[in-house]
Amino acid sequence: MNTRPALEFSQPEVLARLLALDATELDTLEFGVIGIGPDTVVCDYNAFESKMAGLSKDRVIGHPLFTVVAPCMNNFMVAQRFEDAAAEGQALDLTLDYVLTLRMRPVKVQLRLLAGRGADRRFVLINRKP
């Protein structure tokens, strides 16, 4: 049986792999995945993240990420980085420590911010810290 090895949060070249996965495959991953379009509207929201945040997909998909879905990321540490990368036509692959307010509790996580040069579809990956 030819099973594709599961994607790891911190593996290199993860962006290309993510772009190739459909919603069902994103749901099998063991870390949170939020995909946004060039207008920051959420187009991907996997099951892992939905469960962690306590938000169902239909409340999230189609809404702007930084103002509606994850306002905690709307600062220069996260949102601004996507803007800057897009403005400069640069790729983005940055992992940083962060605190999310999932279900209103402070939760330490690692975020990985991903964008290709074209900045069409960008991703925020969320990994719980041990």
Binding site: C72, V99, L100, P106
Partner: peptide, 11 residues
């Protein structure tokens, strides 16, 4: 703690 609080305090 809610998201805007984290938005303002994280930086």
């Amino acid at each position: 703690i809610n998201p805007v609080a984290a938005q303002l305090m994280m930086p």
